[in-house]
Deep mutational scan, measured.
Amino acid sequence: TTVHLNGVTYTFPNPEEARKFVEKLAKTLNLKVEVHNGTYHIE
């Protein structure tokens, strides 16, 4: 599972880890999250 954040790409072997990371980040920084083909894009 891949996460794109400010031009940096993070790869998680575990989709659940990626989801938790994204949710925590989005909540902390009040960001918008979009998912395209299983890839998270955070703005």
Results as ranks from 00 to 15, higher is better:
Thr1Leu: 07
Thr1Gly: 10
Thr1Met: 08
Thr1Tyr: 06
Thr1Lys: 08
Thr1Ile: 07
Thr1Pro: 06
Thr2Ile: 13
Thr2Ser: 10
Thr2Gly: 07
Thr2His: 14
Thr2Gln: 13
Thr2Met: 14
Thr2Trp: 12
Val3Phe: 04
Val3Asn: 00
Val3Gly: 00
Val3Ala: 03
Val3Cys: 09
His4Arg: 13
His4Met: 13
His4Gln: 09
His4Asn: 10
Leu5His: 07
Leu5Asp: 02
Asn6Thr: 04
Asn6Ala: 09
Asn6Ile: 07
Asn6Arg: 10
Gly7Cys: 15
Gly7Thr: 05
Gly7Arg: 07
Gly7Trp: 07
Val8Gln: 10
Val8Met: 10
Val8Cys: 15
Val8His: 10
Val8Lys: 12
Val8Thr: 09
Val8Pro: 00
Val8Tyr: 12
Thr9Phe: 10
Thr9Ala: 11
Thr9His: 07
Thr9Asp: 04
Thr9Glu: 09
Thr9Arg: 13
Thr9Met: 13
Thr9Asn: 06
Tyr10Pro: 00
Tyr10Glu: 01
Tyr10Ile: 12
Tyr10Gln: 01
Thr11Met: 11
Thr11Leu: 11
Thr11Ser: 10
Phe12Cys: 13
Phe12Asn: 00
Phe12Thr: 00
Phe12Leu: 03
Pro13Gly: 09
Pro13Val: 10
Pro13Asp: 09
Pro13Leu: 10
Pro13Thr: 11
Pro13Ala: 12
Pro13Ile: 11
Asn14Gln: 05
Asn14Met: 04
Asn14Thr: 10
Asn14His: 07
Asn14Phe: 06
Asn14Val: 05
Asn14Gly: 10
Asn14Glu: 05
Asn14Asp: 10
Pro15Glu: 09
Pro15Asn: 10
Pro15Tyr: 07
Pro15Cys: 14
Pro15Asp: 12
Pro15Gly: 09
Pro15Arg: 08
Pro15Ser: 10
Glu16Lys: 08
Glu16Ile: 10
Glu16Ala: 10
Glu17His: 09
Glu17Gly: 08
Glu17Lys: 11
Glu17Pro: 01
Glu17Cys: 15
Ala18Gly: 03
Ala18Phe: 04
Ala18Thr: 05
Ala18Glu: 00
Arg19Val: 06
Arg19Ile: 08
Arg19Tyr: 08
Arg19Cys: 13
Arg19Gly: 04
Arg19Asp: 04
Arg19Phe: 08
Lys20Ala: 11
Lys20Met: 11
Lys20Leu: 11
Lys20Trp: 08
Lys20Ser: 09
Lys20Arg: 12
Phe21Asp: 00
Phe21Asn: 00
Phe21Met: 03
Phe21Gln: 01
Phe21Arg: 00
Phe21Val: 01
Phe21Gly: 00
Phe21Pro: 00
Val22Phe: 03
Val22Cys: 14
Val22His: 01
Val22Ser: 03
Val22Trp: 03
Val22Pro: 00
Glu23Trp: 09
Glu23His: 07
Glu23Asn: 07
Glu23Phe: 11
Glu23Lys: 07
Glu23Gly: 04
Lys24Asp: 13
Lys24Ala: 13
Leu25Trp: 08
Leu25Cys: 13
Leu25Glu: 02
Leu25Lys: 01
Leu25Pro: 00
Leu25Phe: 04
Leu25Arg: 01
Leu25Ile: 09
Leu25Tyr: 04
Leu25Ser: 01
Leu25Thr: 03
Leu25Asn: 01
Ala26Cys: 15
Ala26Ser: 11
Ala26Leu: 13
Ala26Asn: 06
Ala26His: 05
Ala26Trp: 05
Ala26Arg: 11
Ala26Ile: 12
Ala26Val: 12
Lys27Cys: 15
Lys27Ser: 09
Lys27Gly: 10
Lys27Ile: 08
Lys27Leu: 14
Lys27Arg: 10
Lys27Met: 13
Lys27Val: 07
Lys27Asn: 09
Lys27Tyr: 10
Lys27Gln: 12
Lys27Ala: 12
Thr28Gly: 06
Thr28Lys: 11
Thr28Val: 12
Thr28Ile: 13
Thr28Ser: 08
Leu29Ser: 06
Leu29His: 14
Leu29Gly: 10
Leu29Arg: 04
Leu29Ile: 06
Leu29Trp: 07
Leu29Phe: 10
Leu29Pro: 06
Leu29Gln: 07
Asn30Lys: 08
Asn30Cys: 15
Asn30Glu: 06
Asn30Gly: 10
Asn30Trp: 05
Asn30Ala: 07
Asn30Arg: 05
Leu31Pro: 01
Leu31His: 03
Leu31Asp: 01
Leu31Thr: 04
Leu31Asn: 01
Leu31Glu: 01
Lys32His: 08
Lys32Met: 05
Lys32Phe: 05
Lys32Glu: 03
Lys32Ala: 04
Lys32Leu: 06
Lys32Ser: 06
Lys32Trp: 05
Val33Leu: 05
Val33Gly: 01
Val33Gln: 01
Val33Asn: 01
Val33Lys: 00
Glu34Gly: 04
Glu34Phe: 14
Glu34Asp: 05
Glu34His: 14
Val35Ile: 13
Val35Phe: 15
Val35Cys: 15
Val35Thr: 04
Val35Leu: 12
Val35Arg: 02
Val35Ser: 03
Val35Asp: 03
Val35Gly: 01
His36Lys: 13
His36Gly: 03
His36Thr: 06
His36Asp: 04
His36Gln: 07
Asn37Leu: 04
Asn37Cys: 15
Asn37Phe: 04
Asn37Ala: 04
Asn37Lys: 04
Asn37Gly: 06
Asn37Ser: 04
Asn37Trp: 03
Asn37His: 05
Asn37Val: 02
Gly38Pro: 01
Gly38Ile: 02
Gly38Leu: 03
Gly38Asn: 05
Gly38Cys: 14
Gly38Asp: 05
Gly38Val: 02
Gly38Phe: 04
Thr39Met: 12
Thr39Tyr: 06
Thr39His: 15
Thr39Asp: 14
Thr39Val: 15
Thr39Leu: 04
Tyr40Val: 07
Tyr40Ser: 03
Tyr40Leu: 09
Tyr40His: 03
Tyr40Gly: 02
Tyr40Cys: 12
Tyr40Arg: 01
Tyr40Pro: 03
His41Val: 13
His41Asp: 04
His41Phe: 15
His41Arg: 04
His41Ile: 14
His41Ser: 04
His41Thr: 07
Ile42Leu: 14
Ile42Gly: 03
Ile42Gln: 02
Ile42Val: 11
Ile42Ala: 04
Glu43Gly: 08
Glu43Ala: 09
Glu43Trp: 15
Glu43Val: 15
Glu43Arg: 10
Glu43Cys: 15
